[in-house]
Design a protein around this nucleic acid. Structure first.
Lengths: 356, 356
DNA sequence: CATAAGCACTCTCCACCGGAGAGTGCTAAA
DNA sequence: TTTAGCACTCTCCGGTGGAGAGTGCTTATG
């Protein structure tokens, strides 16, 4: 079953590989697969019967004991089979699961869905979240792409009421943001339009910091407009990025969340939605899919969860994060291939959108 | 405890009031309150002890039997206390709960939170959802306000790449929508800006239908722009309205959703998010808070749920929906006062935004 | 006649028990 | 090195037997 070629797609764990015999690897793989599928600890006899390995249950017992000794399996109760440890999952992800691609039929289905949505960023993100949740069978998270080095392209001021208006800014990334603004004096559209033109001329091509630095000296209406432009522009980077999620109902199908208490934690976590963006800095620039299993997770609340995330976007232009989150006992192969494909797809869409 | 004055804030049920004696009303009220608080059926002895009514458990038993006869209570098992029927809740909402206002301390807290958010529609909606969920202790839903009779105020065309651009439209309601557009030919900003001005002149003040009707005759670039404008404008009304929800974790605290199966239905329902907008037409123009209890709900999936909703907005300008959803056994008084207050607040914000 | 007291009955909840099933570790044989 | 055998352990039901709470009915009482 194991094809033996090295798997380097996923960042390998720290410990060495050579400590496991081929048969041990085979057994570990079966255990992970079986446990992920059924959620029940797997025992030696069942494994000997179903796996097709040509050895008896006693031999498997010995190997399992060895794997436990090495830290890949654990023993919940004296009797009742074994389950993988975090380290066991990690080994599985790094060396045993193979380099799985999403089936091409599924890829086509997804692609087709995206073709149908007319070019709208928000809808892309929501669709990505929904699709990812379905493909991975888990809760999905997709952050909006954050412009990396946004420059101002366009400014528009719209009068709503005498003292209330809209400030709309467009960046070189094609991102749009609107903010409502109170004016210090009564104005109408005829006053605002020329001001917008003047400001656009003056600020075009600048970064958020540069825009903020141009504020000194201005006064009155121009000053108010500048303040709102700077505020909206700042808001487009960094924090406050919307994170869409989908597939919350998958959480409850997992037996480990059968009792409400655990599940509630997860829901509260995702409902807040703030945690993916908190994770973003940790992902840094490393490209590709990253996997965090159980204890490896930064935040304590996530100890019993597994996370598969990837950045997406265009180098130096925009960057976003997408991923799935589920119980530690999750189908990492499926999740990883789904996340990888979706990241590629979203990156492609972003590339279409910016330059090239 | 009952102040005796008529309660007319909530649409009264069909049946008459006179059939219940004062003591029966008192007992029904205690039962609803107790059952809502504890989730356990309430028996005659416990009621006699804790309620402070000066009668014995036997008397209460007789009254409870009468209330059951009349359809306000039911008997899950031969032994084990009684619980309110949908009709019992309905009577409670219409006549027994009093005209509760949200405590002013809470109102102040909420108001303060809204003051802190700088005028941004999206953020208002999210904040409203989060606040409502917390105040009512249930899952909340808030739809974005839908412009009633939107008229085009502003058009902006922005070049992103030679053949790709942004169409931004602003309506008289202050709503902004952007759509990406493919051009039939290579264009730059210098070509687009005059076109935007021309189109804005031609289309200003028109409704979505009128804009759609102006499309015949145009060709080439103008035609493409018009198509996208019409599309974006249509999309601002009716369907596709974003519905934000918050407080999903409250679902799981309810004992009736202790086993995952039920809870999963609710999550899937809310995850889809489509059902509130499906409900909107039923709410029609009737102002004020509406309550749907159990079987009264239109959709079958909601039979075991209670819904408290209200429209908000400004007459003839915009209209949105907000509400909470929870188990049939929910604190209707608290939910109703929360929803009512939040609807007032949001209506006020909308009024600030549109004329006057 | 409304209220209260007493009583037999029912039903849930929980703790306990015991057997079936599955798994383990260890020893000894092939 | 592998396997067969065996004693032991632990979980998972299904049944059982109070304890507790609630009901309906009947009877007494002001």
């Amino acid at each position: 079953m194991d094809d033996g070629r090295p798997k380097t797609t996923i960042t390998p764990p720290g410990e060495s590989v050579a400590t496991l015999s081929e048969r041990q690897r085979l057994i570990l793989r079966f255990i992970v697969r079986d446990y992920v599928a059924t959620g029940r600890p797997v025992g030696s006899k069942a494994l000997a019967d179903s796996s097709g390995i040509g050895v008896s249950s006693a031999t498997i017992r010995n190997e399992m004991a060895a794997l436990e000794e090495l830290g890949y399996l654990e023993h919940l109760h004296t009797s009742g089979g074994r389950i993988p440890t975090d380290q066991g999952y990690r080994y599985f992800v790094a060396h045993l699961m193979g380099d799985i691609e999403l089936p091409s039929s599924e890829r086509l289905t997804i692609l087709h869905q995206f073709r149908q949505v007319e070019l709208q960023l928000e809808q892309w993100i929501e669709l990505a979240a929904a699709t990812l949740a379905r493909a991975a069978g888990n809760v999905s998270l997709v952050s909006a792409p954050i412009p990396q080095t946004p420059r101002l392209r366009h400014i528009e001021l719209v009068a709503l009421q005498p003292r209330l208006g809209l400030v709309i800014i467009v960046t070189t990334n094609g991102a749009v943001r609107q903010v409502m603004a109170h004016w210090p004096e009564d104005v109408d559209q005829e006053t605002l339009s020329p001001l917008a033109d003047t400001l656009a001329q003056a600020l075009r091509g600048l970064t958020p910091e540069e825009v903020a630095s141009r504020m000194t000296g201005a006064s009155g209406l121009a000053r108010a407009a500048l303040e709102h432009i700077a505020m909206a522009f700042q808001g487009m980077t960094a924090t406050g990025t919307a994170v869409h999620h989908s597939g919350l109902e998958h959480v409850l199908t997992q037996p480990e969340f059968g009792d409400a208490a655990e599940a509630q934690d997860v829901l509260a976590l995702l409902g807040g939605g703030s945690f993916l963006s908190a994770m973003l800095p940790r992902l840094g620039e490393k490209p590709g899919v990253r996997v965090f299993i159980g204890q490896e997770n930064p935040a304590g609340e996530l100890r019993r969860l597994g996370i598969v995330v990837s950045t997406y976007g265009v180098d130096g232009e925009v960057v976003g994060v997408l991923g799935v989150i589920g119980p530690t006992r999750m189908a990492y192969d499926r999740s990883i291939s789904s996340v990888r494909y979706m990241a590629q797809l979203m990156s492609g869409l972003m590339a279409d959108l910016h330059g090239e």
